[in-house]
Amino acid sequence: MSERRAVASLWIGEKLHYLNQLCLLSHVRAGHRTILYCADKVDNVPDGIEVRPASEIMDLDRALIEATSASFLSNVFRYKMIRKIGAIWIDCDAFCHRPFPEDQEYIFGRHGMSGALNCGVVGLPQQCELMDQLLDYYDNLPDYPAWWNKNQRRKYDRQDPNLSHAARIYNAERTAFGPQAFTYFAKQTGQYDQASDRDVLYPVPFQLNDIFYDPYGRVEGHFTENTLSVHLYTNGTKPWWQKHAPLPGSYAARMCEQVGVDPTKALR
């Protein structure tokens, strides 16, 4: 068993894509105990990854997942997991470039072009005000998120009233339970300034995510000596790349060779 800090993620579904296998194994390769909480029986989890039932952390509302997305409940699952076991949350599309520091309590960062925070990689103390406020938000949803403007509230009001309150918020603003909430509460509790710069956890902007599949793209040109994680943004990947192996020489292909993943065995 590795002595490095544990990392953990959630998977809802019966099969991992090769990029998910790659990202999870990259943390194993870096020496982190890597836990995958599963809502279903997953038949292609690589050796070295510890599989645990998601119910150990929380019960998953399948009807709510159907009304939103498989990634919806990960927004609350991540904080309940951190509170319970103290592991670092990693999305299943976050590639470990270098091991996470052992002595850093707060691990989260800015992403994209706007400076907003992302929560694809999150490390927090098990007991902290930021965690308290996030969990209270999810457990006691307000009529509207506190940071919403009039237009966002109108979008909510136009949603199907037969949907649950949570689903209406999600449909109005897909990131209201993820980056929006994390950014708002980090500012409320004074932790926003502890966010790392984009190059640490999200060196490649979301808008450029096709570069991972381009054999002539200089992905590493985005990296610095501070880069720890590389987010591959599989939710934004074009369907073609989900169904085909990466081109030889591309970042995705090179990392698969480096970590030991055969893309052809785990396509969609």
Rank of each mutant, 00 (worst) to 15 (best):
D91W: 07
F206R: 11
D136Y: 13
A8P: 05
A195K: 01
Q258I: 03
Y192N: 04
P246Y: 04
D132Y: 01
S250T: 05
F72H: 14
S114M: 05
E105N: 13
V7G: 02
S55N: 01
D214N: 14
D262H: 09
E220M: 10
Q180T: 08
G112V: 01
A172M: 03
G123W: 07
N75H: 13
K80L: 13
A116Q: 14
E105D: 15
G249I: 09
I211K: 07
L141A: 00
F77P: 10
A116L: 12
L22S: 09
L36G: 08
D59T: 10
P215H: 06
V28E: 08
I169D: 00
L208F: 06
I57Y: 02
R198S: 10
P53V: 03
V121E: 07
L134T: 06
N151Y: 12
Q207V: 13
S2G: 04
M131S: 12
Y79T: 04
W241H: 13
L228W: 09
E14I: 07
D103L: 08
Q188S: 11
I12W: 04
C119N: 15
E56S: 00
I88Q: 03
N75S: 11
L25T: 04
I88N: 13
I57G: 02
E3L: 11
Q188I: 10
W89F: 15
R218E: 15
R153P: 02
A252Q: 08
S74G: 04
V259I: 15
W240N: 04
G112I: 08
C38Y: 04
D157F: 02
N20D: 15
Y106G: 11
I169A: 00
V121C: 14
P248A: 00
K150W: 14
A63E: 13
R158C: 03
P125D: 02
I211P: 03
H165V: 03
K84F: 01
R98N: 12
F206D: 08
H165Q: 13
K265F: 03
V7I: 08
I82M: 13
D43V: 13
S229P: 01
P205D: 10
Q242R: 15
E102R: 09
R62P: 10
S69C: 01
F72M: 01
F108P: 05
N44V: 10
L24R: 12
A6G: 12
L201W: 11
F182G: 11
R98E: 10
R218N: 14
I90N: 06
K15L: 05
L208G: 00
G236W: 12
G86W: 10
A63G: 05
